[in-house]
Amino acid sequence: MTSTTEGAPTRGWKLPPMGVLGPILALIALIVLGAAMNPSFLAYANITNVLARSAFIGIIAVGMTFVITAGGLDLSVGSMAAFIAGLMILVMNAALPTLGVGVPIILLGMAVALVAGLLAGLLNGFLITTLGIEAFIVTLGTMGIYRSLVTWLADGGTLSLDFGLRTFYRPVYFDGILGVSWPIIVFALVVIAGEVLMGRMRFGRHCAATGSNEQVAHYSNVDVNRTRLATYAMLGVLVGVATIMYVPRLGSASASTGVLWELEAIAAVIIGGTVLKGGFGRVWGTVIGVLILSLIDNILNLTDLVSPYLNGAIQGVIIILAVILQRESRAKD
């Protein structure tokens, strides 16, 4: 363990402190800013609101972290969520006369969401891995397909869950245990499972290996296609989970459900430090990314800082800043 290697600067790989700290600092800065602007920012109700509404994108973004880490991309998740929500509502309304309002019909709806998500994810994965079509193209295609399917199912309008059913199902979004609402609990569980899977289990390593060099992964006994397929399938299931949380909130789905969720999820993943071209991913970073995105909206709504016309610009600037923070630190080290 002596000399340095030929020609190489003694750079080595230090843990880039800012690369890790960057997103966390950005989040803390936002929280401080929010608290300074409005005292109700840190109130229990507001924190619950923000966390619960982050849950949909957050759950999806955890799945997206794996897809991107393995070198893929999925643009279809927003449409997929809308489609699954629509399907779920149709099935539950149709089953109402036979099953009546009760737990079984809710379980049926959940099963429909999970199975539909799994199938949709497998379809994306199959087209990408087995047929070898670019992920961008495949998911751009399925994005359009699911979006128009939900428009078609809703006849151009809105699919609404039967009122009685909705009242019964509603607590899944708004209630919880010990004052923590269900979406937050589910989000937390998904994050913990994702973090363990990414950092502590074979699958996570295989995703990173596949994303950084497919050939090396193949020569290292990693089933590249199966790994990829599994990331898409997992993302599909998580979209299903997110939809299960989404439907009880408003009890409806339409063509405008889930618009741009895919870009928000991808942005959250990248803000969190996952590399867009694959090979490195971290689930906890994604959570930070999701929270940053939700907080920006929340703070802008809670204050009159800027014209609402500029909300998008503020978001854009913060996204780019968060990524620059990480990049610069990496270059310096």
Binding site: A208, A209, V216
Partner: peptide, 27 residues
């Protein structure tokens, strides 16, 4: 370089990549 090692990763990840199963369900 192209088939053997992940150049952007550390030695530990490379060393065990092909035989991760030996390191348990939770690595």
């Amino acid at each position: 370089k192209l088939k053997g090692l992940l150049l952007g990763k550390g030695m530990r990840e490379n060393l065990t990549l092909a035989s991760l199963a030996r390191y348990g369900t939770f690595i």
